[in-house]
Amino acid sequence: MTTQTARTMINLSDDKVIRARLTEYLLAQTGTTWTLGVFNRYSVGFSWITYGFDAQQQGDTQPQGMILRLGPPYGLFAPYSALPQFAALKALEGTGVPVPKVYWWSDDASLLGAPFFVCERVSGSAPVPWVSGDTSGFEEGWRKEIARQFVSALAAQHRAPWRESPGFEQFAHINEDNAALVQVKFWEEAHGRWALKPYPMLRWAMLWLRRNLPVAPRVSLVHGDYRLGNFLEVDGRITSILDWELVHPGDPHEDLGWAFLPQFTGGSGLVCRLVSQDDFIAQYEREVGFKVNLQSLHFYRVFSLVKLALTHLAAVRCFEDGQFNDLRMPAMGTQVAPVLRQISKLLQ
C-alpha cells in the first residue's frame, strides 16, 4: 500500500478505525498488547487532529492517559511532519519547561493515515486571550504567578540545548547569522501557496523584513506560537505548554515578538493578559542569560504580524478550497486588514 493510497483510505475522523490501527501499531512497537479506551476528539485548533484516550499495557495495573495528534493532509499548515514536535518535546524533557512526555511518532501515513505522535495526557484547562464585554481580568495573585511561570518556561526553553538531540539534523545549517532569513524565506514560500490575491501592504512588509534581518544572540528552540491559549493550567500552576507544530531552531526574540502581539492582550495592555512588557523582559533577561535587543524585538514584532496575516490567508485558502466548512476560518480572514493596518502603524 502506498502512502497516498493510505491517506485516501483512512478517515481521520473515524475514531474506531484510528483506535484499531493505533492498537496494532503499539503492539508492533512494544511487543505487548494494549487496550485502548474510548477516543475523545478535542475540538481545538485548525491543524492537527487531537484525540485523548486511556491506554493500558498488558501487565499494567492502571491505564495511563494519552494524546494522539494527527497532521491531516488538508490541515492549515499541511503537509506535516511529526518529527520536529517529537524531537523538541523529547529535547525539552527535564529542562524545566512543562511539556508532556512523548512516546512514539511516525511520518508514515500508511500507519494511521497521516503523520502522528503519541504523548502523555496532561491535566489542566487553557485560559484564552479573547474576552467578551463582560469578562473580567484574571485574579491578581493568579495572574502574577502564572505570568512568572509563563516567562520562566520560555527562558528555560530558550536555554535548552538541542543540537545534539536526535531529530534536528534538518536544522543543522541554522546559525545566528541566517536564523531570521530562514524564517522569512519559509513564510515567503507560504505566502506564495496561500494568497488568493495580491496584498500590497504585505508585500511591502515582507521586503522590509528582508532589509532588516537581525543577527540572533543564540539559536534556540523557538515554539512559534507561544501565547495565552497554548498552555494548560491547574490551580495556579502551568502543567504543560501546548501546540508545538511550528517549533524550529531560531532567534529566541521570535517567541517574544509573537507573545507581545496586541491580539493576545485581550484589551488589558499586558502581554497575553498576564504581565507588562517591561516586567516580562526584566524577568526573561535574568533567566535566559542575554539582554533583549530592542531592534531585534521590533523586527520580530513586524515578522509576527506578517506571520499572523499569512496564517489568516491560510485559513481563507483552506476554506475557499472547500477543505473545511468551519466558519472560524473565513472569520479569521476578516482580520487580514486589521493586521496589515497594525503593520503600517508599527513601521511608520
Binding site: V131, S132, T135, P200, M201, A331, T334, L340, R341, S344
Partner: peptide, 27 residues
C-alpha cells in the same frame, strides 16, 4: 504615494468590516 494608497485601502476595509466576535465564537 504608495503609503497614502495602502492606508486609504486598509481604512476602507476596516470601516466595511463587522465588529469581530472571536470571544463569542470561542466561548
Amino acid at each position: 504615494a504608495l503609503h497614502i494608497y495602502m492606508n486609504r485601502h486598509l481604512k476602507h476595509e476596516l470601516v466595511t468590516s463587522a465588529k469581530p466576535m472571536f470571544a463569542e465564537i470561542s466561548a
